[in-house]
Design a protein around this nucleic acid. Structure first.
Length: 462
RNA sequence: GCCGCCAUCGUCUAGUGGCCUAGGACGGUUGAUUCUCAAUCAACAAACCGAGGGUUCGAAUCCCUCUGGCGGCACCA
């Protein structure tokens, strides 16, 4: 069987790893790992105008956070380095020129202005915007002259006027496009950088990528890539176009409408395992109907053919539920250190250790710890609502004289409450607000036990 | 406008011709428990399988048409 090699090819044009990229990364990773293959990261930084400093580092860090490890990449190298397209310019130039020599591509000297005007005209005529082929017919002499004059040029793919280009998508079946509707794509830009189309094909071939698993947004450019493979006489990889993650309004997941950066999920206190698990359930269902599973379990049973073709809506509510499940199923000691690390040492470890058992069932993300347990570390600056002193008095007296453990406190408070003829829940609520400042929180008496008698009585002004 | 992809509860999905009066999960609602909130447990509502035609003894499952949604149509990826 052919050696399996997959890849993701992010562009360092955003502030972090896009969650949609994390999604395709996961699938690529799983496919590679279940076949004992390699998962590669290649940085496609061919657009200098959109380049974002530091983006690559952050993308790699997020992938690492998610536990999606690569075998080859810009940071760790590999047999096909470099893994950054900006460092491979000579390669693309060579192949682009080879295509020109073979007659499958041509120099184009059209100015951006002319192209813009052309497209404008086409639009007004309700025609599809396409290059009109002006430079296709340039003579050798014309080309030589233009180049000698230092005119800027690009290299365009010469797409056949007739026939259709067909390819088989592993999860969608056969897809075909009429060649006459495919544009003469620019493959090498005037600045010497390749466009995506040349870059991917050349690198995927050179890096021996066997499966191209990417978002469905690429379906319509796939025929251009197929043509490129054919012109080079290279063996075609297997294609699988994943459904796109969507916003609630069904549009492609975007930062305008959704948190899309992997870093956001980290900052919000989501656990990487939960994020990955949730991502896995997008467009794919565990054969045994399991909702909660690890990447390793997924690797055992995953099959690309079972990927759903419909684009799923990314539902943060379900992710939150899943995160809560992971939190509750984790070992307490692990959660404790996760919380400690999440707050960067802002809260004492000792107090976190004591309070986690009380709040673990009440939070869905690490970031919720603060709202739930903040009162352990800091006196409430203000109370959520005013205190009924008469009600509070009952507990004050009971607490002042009883042993400091929650059983004793409970007994004392209940007795005092009954004697006063009041409702237990009302009395507890009064005490809760007085000590924690809030109407919602962990079990009160256990909390007070941890808080300590001194601090509690202080807050009660006894 | 042109090309392409897609179509089961609000959401994620199971379902590949009879096991479907369509199952599970999230979310929602109700109840139990309870010092609040959760967690937990129980129950309920929720898709007539986008619409219309076929094929078949029989279709969510196969075919066609339509409609809708989405994606693409750059010297961006």
């Amino acid at each position: 069987m052919k050696h399996i090699r997959t890849r993701i090819a992010p562009s360092p044009t955003g502030e972090n790893l896009h969650i949609g990229n994390a999604y395709t990364a996961l699938i690529n990773y799983v496919v590679a790992k279940q076949n004992n293959g390699q998962f590669i990261i290649r940085i496609e930084d061919t657009d200098r105008t959109r380049f974002v400093e530091g983006s690559e580092t952050r993308i790699l860090a997020s992938l690492d956070w998610l536990g999606i490890a690569h075998d080859e990449g810009p940071d760790i190298g590999g047999p096909h380095k470099p893994y950054r397209q900006s460092e491979r310019l000579e390669i693309y130039k060579k192949f682009a020129e080879e295509l020109v020599e073979k007659g499958h591509a041509y120099y184009c000297f059209c100015s951006p202005e002319r192209l813009a005007q052309m497209r404008k005209d086409q639009e007004s005529r309700h025609e599809p915007p396409m290059y009109d082929g002006k430079c296709r017919t340039n003579s050798r002499q014309q080309i030589a002259d233009s180049r000698e004059n230092g005119e800027k040029f690009v290299i365009r793919l010469k797409v056949p006027d007739e026939g259709t280009t067909t390819f088989t998508d592993l999860i969608r079946g056969e897809i075909s496009f009429e060649n006459k509707l495919i544009d003469d794509q620019v493959i090498l830009k005037s600045d010497g950088f390749p466009t995506y189309h040349l870059g991917v094909v050349v690198d995927d071939h050179l890096m021996e990528i066997s499966h191209i698993i990417r978002g469905e947004e690429w379906i319509s450019s796939t025929p251009k890539h197929i043509l490129l493979y054919q012109f080079f006489s290279w063996e075609l990889p297997i294609y699988a176009h994943m459904p796109l993650l969507r916003n609630t309004d069904k549009s492609k997941l975007s930062k305008r409408k959704n948190p899309v950066w992997a870093s956001w999920y980290k900052e919000q206190g989501f656990l990487p395992k939960a994020v990955v698990n949730y991502l896995a359930t997008m467009a794919w269902a565990h054969p045994e109907g399991k909702e909660l599973f690890s990447v390793d379990e997924m690797i055992q049973v995953f099959d690309l053919k079972n990927i759903q073709t419909t684009a799923p809506i990314f539902d943060i509510e379900k992710l939150r539920w899943m995160n809560g499940e992971y939190l509750r199923r984790s070992q307490k000691s692990k959660v404790k250190s996760q919380i400690y690390n999440f707050y960067n040492g802002k809260y004492e470890e000792d107090m976190i250790d004591k309070t986690v058992p009380l709040i673990i069932e009440r939070i869905k993300t690490l970031a919720e710890y603060e709202a739930m347990a903040g009162f352990f570390f800091e006196r409430p600056k203000e109370l959520e609502r005013p205190i009924n002193e008469a009600l509070l008095k009952i507990t004050k007296e009971a607490l002042a004289s009883c042993d400091w453990n929650h059983e004793a406190m409970e007994k004392a408070i209940r007795e005092a409450t009954n004697k006063a003829g009041m409702k237990v829940r009302d009395v507890f609520m009064e005490l809760r607000v007085a000590v924690t400042g809030k109407t919602v929180g962990p079990p009160l008496l256990e909390s007070l036990e941890i808080l300590g008698k001194k601090e509690t009585l202080l807050r009660l002004k006894i």
